[in-house]
Amino acid sequence: MNETPDPGPRTPDILLSLENVDAGYGPIRALHGITLNVRAGEIVTLIGANGAGKTTTLLCCSGIVTPTSGAIRFAGQAIHGQPAHAIVRHGIAQVPEGRKIFPRLSVLENLRLGAFTRSDPTEIAASIDHAFTLFPILAERRHQAGGTLSGGEQQMLAIGRALMSKPRVLLMDEPSMGVAPLLVLKIFETIRTLNREGLSVLLVEQNARLALKLAHRGYVIETGRIVMEDDAKRLLADPKVQEAYLGE
């Protein structure tokens, strides 16, 4: 019976997987049996309307929201039920919705906090340099309070801060939100670069076109359920996706 290879967590190249995840906020059920996965080296995007459950899905991965049932595995190891501060240590970092920069800490302090789980000062300094190379504007603003940065600069800081934990997978929640169009392109370009360097990405976006162009694969979520899953290129060409999410 079991002739086909098991597509589940034991497939070696699957880095992050959600299996039948239910989650919610008190009596509100936000996710109904979400199943999706991210393979090593992939950019996967999750697109869907406002309130569909994209953010909740990411928060389940990072441990801010605890699933009520189902399983989340990272590199084969079950991580659901672990507190958020423990999950970061496995190699999962999040660029949260709305950026959530520490407004009264300097850019440098924000970055240093991103490396809270690490201890080697020289390696941390190297990571800060790396963040400054990716986003030179952050170097200029290093002593400025995070709250005084523009939306786009804060987004870059949020990405730089997430990278400071040396993650294997980066969860990104609407990195284009509140960011000037030119900077959005720059940020997406950076995501591509990071991916080429080996980082896997799970990207949530309102801007579905941009996300599907960047990603390898995509999932479509509607009211807490995955309704489509395919190659990003095929989703981009799909009439239903075009009508619902690409405004055609």
Partner: peptide
Amino acid sequence: TAMRAVAQNPTAAQLMGID
């Protein structure tokens, strides 16, 4: 600094690995 981070945004602080 972790203390100030928790005061300013506890959720983001958790995401940094702060208990």
